[in-house]
Structure formats: structure tokens, C-alpha cells
């Protein structure tokens, strides 16, 4: 069961004085979709390059499917499909020709490769344009061709470096769905790097947060949220207004705050001008809105604050400082 697709131990990479990846430990199990989340320059790409043996490891070890990738990079590359960020193709060749070339580099017999290529092109939705030159492809099509390119060697592990960069929201959604579908269908392990929390949330089983070469936290998305925002998993923001034409005067604000605090699971209430911020352990927006209206106020808006990556590592830095 616990077969490890990727096993990283004490991985370190330095560029001169700068430490790009600092003593990284990570294991990814077979069939898992793992999201590597981190801001630009966090060392995500460097880690990926080391997994593939495309750059030298300063210390530590990387094993992919049980094979040491700094010693036997060829074996690893046979099993791993890698989609680099901002992937490039030979523009004078058609999509199919590009795929066939990669198949030839993988020593797949011609007939078999052709069959597989057509199948995969259909799967990623490029069968209509397979004989067009890649120079005529849009960004989304290139990205999908990149995925096809990764899949043609029938990999056990695929590594996608910022695959959604530069795609429109619709394209991102489709692309992510495609990845999940293919991974589930063929039992492929996926390592997915991104700096968008939402995209990672949509598809990944497990997430690692990677900042400044260190893994800050890793785990399932839900547990990660608890890990990070244990006190206040939900934050609601609202705007209130006093309606002048009302005859009855509204409840004093202080009293309303008291009532808000009385709602079960609410941890903290703060008043800001013309509004409030409520932190709670679970979603209390329904209770809040009823309370506000009952108290004689108008509700301008009520929104859940989403946590982006910024908030997450901001949170971590704060904790670091407090320590």
C-alpha cells in the first residue's frame, strides 16, 4: 500500500551563498496528487530539477520509484514525465510530429507510438488540430500538448511545474480536470507545483507549502487549514448600515457584538468602521445575517474571507516572529 513514488531525504541545493532548497524531506505515495505550493523563487522548480537529475544535488538523496535520480537519471526519466513551466515545442512541426519525436526519444516502436499519440491527442482534445503546426497553437493548446507529451511515454509519475501559468480561468479548470481524470484512470502519481492555492485545493490530495527552500507544512488540505488557522478556520466580513427611514431605533452596536459572540463557535468579533469581522470555527454566516437584520440594521454585504497563499505564509512568518 505505502509504495513511495517519490522519496526525498535531506535534499539541499545551494547557489553560492544562497540556499535554494534547505534540507527537504518529502514522500509522495503512489497514485497520489501532491501539490507543491509556494511563492515564486521558493525553490519549487529547483526541487523538481533535482528530482529529475537535471541539476546537481548538493546533499541529500532523491529516489523516484526506488531509483536514485542523481545516479541513474536515465532510469528515472524513463518513468517520469515532466512538463516544464513555459514548455516549448518545435514550431515548424505539427503537434503529432512533436509527440512522435518524443516517442522516438523514448524508444517506443513506431506503430505503437502512432496509436498511442492519436489516442492521447484525443484525450487532451487536440485531435482536430493534430496536423497543424505548433506555431498556430494557443497557449492552452500548447499546455495540453505538453500534457500529451508527458503522457506518451506512459509514465508512473508526472511532474507539472506551474502548468496553469498563463491560462484563462476556463482553461485552468479544464486542464486541472484533465489531470485528475488521467491520474485516477491510470493510477499515475502527480506532483504539481503552483503558487495558486485555489488551483491546488481543487485537485490535490495532499499539499506541501514551500517557502524559502523549506517545507513549512504538509498534509491534507483540510488538516492543513486547521494546522494553519487552528483558532479561526473561518473569517467573515460584513458591512452594516443604519436605515434612517426606520421608526424603531436599531440595537446599540455593543449589544449586537455581545449577541454575535453568543453564537456558538464564534471565537472573535471585531468592529471596524461600517462593518465587522467575525472569526469562528465553523461557517456561521446564516446566523449572523439573521441577527443583524433582527437587530434593525441593514446588511450591505457578508463575505467569507478566502485565504490565499499570502495569508498562509504571512501567518507563518508571524508565528516565526512570535516564537
Amino acid at each position: 500500500m505505502a509504495e513511495k513514488s517519490i522519496d526525498i531525504k535531506g535534499l539541499t541545493k545551494k547557489y553560492g551563498e544562497h540556499i535554494a532548497v534547505d534540507n527537504l524531506n518529502l514522500t509522495i505515495e503512489k497514485g497520489e496528487i501532491f501539490g507543491l505550493l509556494g511563492p515564486n523563487g521558493a525553490g519549487k522548480s529547483t526541487t523538481i530539477l533535482m528530482i529529475l537529475g537535471l541539476t546537481e544535488v548538493d546533499s541529500g538523496s532523491v529516489k523516484v520509484c526506488g531509483i536514485d535520480s542523481s545516479r541513474y537519471p536515465l532510469e528515472v526519466k524513463r518513468k517520469v514525465g515532466y512538463l516544464p513551466e513555459d514548455v516549448g515545442f518545435y514550431n515548424d512541426y505539427t503537434g503529432l510530429q512533436n509527440l512522435m519525436y518524443v516517442a522516438r526519444l523514448n524508444d517506443i516502436p513506431e506503430e505503437e507510438a502512432k496509436k498511442a499519440a492519436l489516442e492521447i491527442l484525443q484525450e487532451v482534445g487536440l485531435e482536430d488540430v493534430k496536423d497543424n503546426k505548433v506555431s498556430s497553437y494557443s497557449r492552452g493548446m500548447r499546455q495540453r500538448l505538453g500534457l500529451a507529451d508527458v503522457l506518451i511515454k506512459n509514465p508512473e509519475v508526472i511532474i507539472l511545474d506551474e502548468p496553469t501559468l498563463g491560462l484563462d480561468p476556463e482553461g485552468v479548470k479544464k486542464f486541472l480536470q484533465l489531470i485528475v481524470r488521467l491520474s485516477r484512470k491510470k493510477g499515475i502519481t502527480v506532483l504539481f507545483s503552483s503558487h495558486h492555492l485555489h488551483q491546488i485545493q481543487q485537485v490535490c490530495d495532499r499539499v506541501g507549502i514551500f517557502v524559502k527552500g523549506k517545507m513549512l507544512a504538509e498534509g491534507k488540505i483540510s488538516s492543513l487549514a486547521q494546522q494553519l488557522f487552528s483558532k479561526n478556520a473561518f473569517t467573515l466580513e460584513g458591512g452594516i448600515a443604519t436605515l434612517t427611514e426606520d421608526v424603531e431605533p436599531p440595537l446599540p452596536l455593543k449589544e449586537m457584538v455581545q449577541k454575535m459572540k453568543a453564537i456558538p463557535e464564534v471565537a472573535h468579533v471585531e468592529l471596524v468602521d461600517n462593518g465587522f469581522v467575525v472569526e469562528s470555527h465553523r461557517d456561521v454566516s446564516a446566523y449572523l445575517s439573521r441577527l443583524i437584520v433582527k437587530s434593525g440594521y441593514g446588511l450591505n454585504f457578508l463575505s467569507k474571507r478566502e485565504y490565499g497563499l499570502d495569508d498562509i505564509y504571512y501567518q507563518y512568518f508571524q508565528e516565526d516572529k512570535n516564537r
Partner: peptide, 10 residues
């Protein structure tokens, strides 16, 4: 950008 793609092949 084709170099890294080719180098990722065996």
C-alpha cells in the same frame, strides 16, 4: 524551451 523537454526524456 525545448531543451528541458528533451532533457527530461531518457
Amino acid at each position: 524551451g525545448t531543451l528541458s523537454r528533451i532533457m527530461a526524456q531518457p
